[in-house]
């Protein structure tokens, strides 16, 4: 199990448990390396990586860029806001033009689900999906499970509830796949208008009551309400959502146990989480960010050394 079974990182759906374990073991070493005084290794010095972001991103883009630079790869960045995409160029043309500049790996975020799968079938470079619409965000799910493993020693047997906008969340879908593959029990909680129809096929527990969900779980992974993806009104208001599904200190204090709070960011403070919860000792939100760099280094490294 020293080789990934996949040539691209398109989604957790395509990985097996050995792949995830290998990524975690490699990330353990990279986490040690990024905490050394000298954080850079020469591993990917012959590799060129293009970060193509057709959708806004702050932490994922920074995290990937930092991971690439820590691995000594050459990095080029592309953002659709200032590109020829605005002039009507197709995705395939844009990417083929970039590939003509001899790029080895493409890290892509795109608003359309399946964009990275489409790309992987049509071009020769290795593709890393950095989020494709409402579909998958594999590196986020890997870093979330890695953070749970770091906190509890293992993921298997733990109860994780994902709270919020499951319908529009690629983080939720990737997390469900990843946690289930690692043997965790997964629950989801949120308004029924924000729950996907295919939920039953994923084998997750559904909670409509926040309190019941929090009492059940060891870890609560809290998601942001993605207003930008909602073309119809699915919530009366953010204020009402916050009243029913927002987590504050009072809600946590009412539980007879302590649970771990996670959030993939960006946090809407006062909506899904209050500041005293987000900044509390039970929150591992900043650990997630740190682990994100190690996980992305591991993914890029393992894809680069993959032998076919």
């Amino acid at each position: 199990m020293n080789n990934l079974s996949v040539d691209h990182m398109l989604g957790i759906k395509y990985l097996n448990k050995n792949d995830i374990d290998l990524i975690f073991q490699t990330a353990d070493n990279f986490k040690k390396i990024i905490n050394q005084p000298i954080k850079k290794v020469p591993s990917l010095r012959d590799v060129t990586i293009a970060n193509l972001f057709f959708e806004n991103s702050t932490r994922t883009k920074l995290s990937f860029e930092l991971a690439e630079k820590r691995l000594s790869a050459d990095v080029i960045n592309f953002s659709s806001a200032s590109s020829s995409v605005k002039k009507g160029e197709t995705l395939l043309d844009t990417v083929n033009n970039i590939l003509a500049m001899k790029v080895d790996i493409i890290v892509m975020r795109h608003p359309n689900p399946g964009a990275s799968v489409f790309l992987s079938r049509n071009i020769s470079a290795k593709i890393v999906n950095a989020g494709d619409g409402t579909h998958e965000h594999p590196t986020q799910a890997l870093l979330d499970s890695f953070s749970i493993r770091e906190k509890y020693g293992e993921v298997a047997g733990k109860k994780i509830v994902i709270i919020g906008d499951i319908l529009h969340s690629r983080v939720a879908l990737s997390n469900i796949y990843c946690l289930k593959k690692l043997g965790a029990e997964v629950g989801v909680c949120g308004p029924s208008t924000l729950m996907p129809k295919y939920l039953d096929s994923l084998g997750v527990n559904h909670f409509s009551s926040l309190n019941a969900a929090l009492k059940w779980c060891d870890v609560a992974n809290v998601l942001r309400i993605q207003l930008e993806r909602q073309d119809v009104q699915l919530l009366p208001s953010l204020r009402e959502y916050s009243n029913v599904y927002g987590i504050n200190k009072k809600v946590l204090d009412s539980l007879d146990k302590q649970i771990t709070i996670m959030h993939p960011g960006p946090i809407n403070r006062g909506v899904e989480l209050t500041s005293d919860v987000a900044d509390s000792e039970h929150s591992i939100i900043l650990n997630q960010v740190e682990n994100g760099v190690a996980i992305r280094m591991a993914v890029l490294y393992l894809l680069s050394i993959k032998k076919n």
Partner: peptide, 24 residues
């Protein structure tokens, strides 16, 4: 030490390189 990340044949070696746990 685990020297995998510093090897000069990382990308060209035919068999995959096995990383070991760093204990430093």
């Amino acid at each position: 030490l685990d020297i995998s990340f510093y090897r000069d044949d990382l990308l060209t070696k035919k068999s995959p390189i096995i990383t070991e746990k760093i204990n430093m």
